[in-house]
Nucleic acid binder design. Structure first.
Length: 511
RNA sequence: GGCGGUGUAGCUCAGUCGGUCAGAGCAUACGGCUCAUAUCCGUAGAGUCGGUGGUUCGAGUCCACCCACCGCCA
């Protein structure tokens, strides 16, 4: 008997020193939507996020604050944890690279690879800027001076540990070639294949402690700490239990999907696969690199002062509106622009006029003509059922493809159908004729049922909105399927609906 | 410089194997409805599908070159 595999999705571990911004929130929100969708379908899900806490910047920031690096991390990590709490993301685990559970496994991995000759020590020469405590290669230095501060550098010879990455180049080229969905989107896959056309060197994976002490100690040489790669990337396997809970690990790892920003493509699509291969582990299903958000057409940067705080956005516009915008506005994988105008456009057109209004008009008529009670279904066709089922199928396909924009497009097409249905049936006309009472009942019943179905469709993407709709429709609990596919007639007859006000009030643009 | 990509209606973009592919949404205009958050439904626009030259019975859709952007690497 085989265990059912888990849908496993990761975000990068964010550098604990960074100020959380829209880019962080974007990746995490998409991972959250995928997770919620797979859970809704009854699948086992493991959604992982976390923080990368080692390195020089942390060490320096801690020193400047006069506290230990660990204390510094413990303070800083809350900014991410608080943001995810505020955005209500549904991650199952939050890994910190300074956690004992992680360090232990990192060291075991290093020992394993070292024992098998995959890691070796070598010396190399380069130039060192003493005041900056930075190492530069031949290419970096400018006329014998540090490219950073302009002061003279000194030639030194340094020893470090290296991972035999280069010899796996052809293996990786073949793997990527044979697995078209491994690196996505297509354009990023091309980039990696282009990158791999050239020689691939071995990877320096350590730093002498004199230069960097805040890191995971190399278990077989305590004068060194491991540098970035084997510390950070390995979080994806340490969290699901590699070397600790093999059964759980295997089941989880089989369904692994890494969501990353395009800035860390090489580390994830070259270093990481080779590290896994050297460890004898299978590859994740997909490494999906998404694009960047510009802000009002300009790159987000501290110097421009336009770094968007997702928490403030959520406070101002609501979590679900932000989620909707991020996922609908741009096909996942491409760059996009975050502008107030576009955001308000989406909120007013899609959320207020389409979704909010159709919800409002059906509930208002239910209240007006049936005193808020769900009318009996009677007999006859359910003209919207097939459309709903089609939308559900589209959403599923989009989720498989990691294309949330297509999922939302399909849901909005369904919402359009509901509006059209109402305009065709004209329940407000039927209501004037007592003879048409049954037909009116069926019409509104169908509309209400469509709203219930819409709540299910939306549950993964806009969980708060879906829950609110569910409650207003007089249903208990939250949007759920009771099966692998949402059924149609799910509204209990005689249920009491409530008209609790607009789902999304229109935002009046003021100049 | 090498590799890859993009250039389609005012705006943002779809367009798989070459032949109803010249499309969608937004914006705009007009019409309809009034249950609804001045919301909803319908209709309309003609954009030389970056340029030039090819292949073909037929090309946004393939090829060559050119122009303009962008990404990766160096």
């Amino acid at each position: 008997m085989t265990d059912k595999k888990t849908f496993y999705v990761t975000t990068p571990i964010y550098y604990v020193n960074d100020v959380p911004h829209l880019g962080h929130a974007y990746t995490t929100v998409v991972a959250d939507c995928l997770s919620r969708f797979h859970r809704l379908r009854g699948e086992e899900v493991f959604f992982l996020t976390g923080t990368d806490e080692h390195g020089q910047k942390v060490e320096q920031a801690a020193a400047a604050a006069g506290i230990s690096p660990q204390d510094h991390c413990d303070r800083m990590v809350h900014r991410f944890q608080d943001l995810w709490r505020q955005l209500d993301t549904s991650h199952d685990d939050f890994i910190r690279t300074t956690q004992e559970r992680h360090i232990r496994v990192v060291q075991a991995i290093l020992t394993d690879l070292h024992d098998r000759g995959e890691i070796y020590k070598d010396s190399y020469q380069g130039w060192y800027c003493v005041p900056d405590e930075r190492f530069w290669t031949e290419k970096d230095i400018e006329g014998g001076n540090c490219p950073d501060c302009g002061r003279p550098v000194v030639e030194i010879t340094e020893e470090n540990y290296f991972f035999r990455m280069g010899k796996y180049r052809q293996w990786l080229v073949d793997y990527i070639t044979e697995n078209p969905d491994f690196v996505r989107p297509q354009t990023r896959r091309n980039e990696i294949l282009g990158f791999l056309r050239k020689d691939l060197g071995d990877l320096c994976i350590s730093r002498p402690k004199e230069r960097l002490s805040w890191g995971v100690e190399i278990p077989f040489d305590t004068d060194f700490v491991t540098y970035v790669w084997f510390d950070a990337l390995t979080n994806y396997i340490t969290a699901p239990g590699y070397l600790v809970d093999e059964k759980r690990f295997t089941r989880t790892w089989e369904g692994a999907h890494h969501l990353i920003g395009k800035d860390i493509l090489t580390t994830h699509a070259v270093y990481w696969p080779i590290m896994l291969h050297a460890l004898g582990l299978p590859q994740p299903k997909t490494i999906f690199a998404h694009g960047w958000w510009t802000i009002e057409g300009r790159k987000m940067s501290k110097s421009l002062g336009n770094v968007v705080d997702p928490g403030r956005l959520a406070e101002e516009y609501g979590i679900d509106a932000i989620r909707y915008f991020l996922m609908r506005e741009v096909p996942f994988g491409l760059d996009g622009d975050f502008s107030k105008r576009a955001l308000i456009g989406r909120i007013n057109n899609d959320l207020a006029n389409d979704l909010g209004n159709v919800f409002s008009r059906i509930l208002a008529m239910t209240k007006k003509y049936f005193d808020g009670f769900v009318p009996p279904s009677g007999s006859g066709e359910s003209p919207l059922a097939a459309q709903g089922a089609a939308a559900w199928e589209e959403v599923g396909k989009a989720a498989e493809k990691i294309a949330p924009h297509l999922a939302l497009a399909a849901i909005w097409e369904f919402i359009g159908r509901i509006n059209k249905f109402l305009d065709d049936e004209k329940p407000w006309i039927l209501a004037r004729d007592p003879e048409q009472r049954d037909r009116l009942a069926r019409c509104l019943r169908e509309g209400l049922e469509a709203l219930r179905f819409t709540a299910i469709l939306l549950a993964a993407f806009m969980p708060h909105t879906a829950a609110r709709m569910w409650a207003d429709l007089g249903l208990d609990g939250g949007p759920s399927l009771r099966g692998t596919v949402p059924g149609w007639n799910g509204l209990p007859e005689g249920g009491r609906t409530t008209l609790s006000g607009p789902l999304f009030p229109r935002i009046e643009e003021k100049d």
